[in-house]
Design a protein around this nucleic acid. Sequence first.
DNA 1: TTTTTTGCAAAACCTTTGCAGTTGG
DNA 2: CCAACTGCAAAGGTTTTGCAAAAAA
Lengths: 158, 158
Amino acid sequence: MTRSRHASPLGFRDIDDIAAALRLRGERFSTPRRLVVEALFDADGAVSAEHIANGSDGRCPRLDLTSVYRTLDRLEELGVVTHMHVGHGPGLYALTRRDAPEYVVCERCERVTTIEPAQLEPVRAFIGEHFGYEVSFGHFPLVGICRACADADDGGVV
Amino acid sequence: MTRSRHASPLGFRDIDDIAAALRLRGERFSTPRRLVVEALFDADGAVSAEHIANGSDGRCPRLDLTSVYRTLDRLEELGVVTHMHVGHGPGLYALTRRDAPEYVVCERCERVTTIEPAQLEPVRAFIGEHFGYEVSFGHFPLVGICRACADADDGGVV
DNA sequence: TTTTTTGCAAAACCTTTGCAGTTGG
DNA sequence: CCAACTGCAAAGGTTTTGCAAAAAA
């Protein structure tokens, strides 16, 4: 099993890895920055800046929202963080994954499903061929109705 | 050619049609509302509330932004208007088309391409089958890079 | 005349900017 | 010590809400 040290789903293995990347660029790894990164490691999926600023729902000390946004911006420039836009809500941030996932979001319940880019290759090819666009669903996810919500409709409306 | 009176691409044929629909619901067809509707008829594609409020680039009198938003909301409830979200910008409004078009937007130049829903049926089927979502691209359009911008990249970056 | 609609002001929401003080290295 | 970072305050862009004045029917 001589696998790469980067076999994990994350581009950066741990907090120290990210701290090192920051220091390498002359940036500092302050307490607020550490808290933001920890919040992202702890998070179950993508979270809003406010979620992080509020202490990940009480799991860590509160931070200033501005600092969180600034930290997330820096981390995104570094490639450590990626954000996406779900519906009308705030931007959602997550640690960058090496395989750059794409998403489908339910516009009813906001459920987010992660998809491996390779699985969407047929869609990308079709749209490229027929309409001349190179589409991607990492920043602005696909939007639709998930099966559960569709089934709920059947029960309620029909 | 005994086609339906509704053969036009619009669900409502003209301004009087919309005025009638409003009055039918006990609503009034005021001057501001008429101006909003005229702006939509005049518009080349979907436009922002601000574009309408500012008089569609001088082609009609200025209106209060709030009233424009309220009018657009009412018209949307009536089914006369539909809005969509393009990138990070403001919502864009257009008269509802009977064939409910879908869109692809270039995230670089904001070019919006209209697509007949039938043409995207293969995409819808694929995503429904593989991921269990009924997707649509009328409210949150597909996002990608158009050919022109992709070609520009080739020139500049390579 | 009566009910709806308007316009203005203010606020809500998400995000960015400016700046003085704090902190990491 | 000094550059980088933080927190606060304020503002920017989009949209919503409250309310008194105006207008439609």
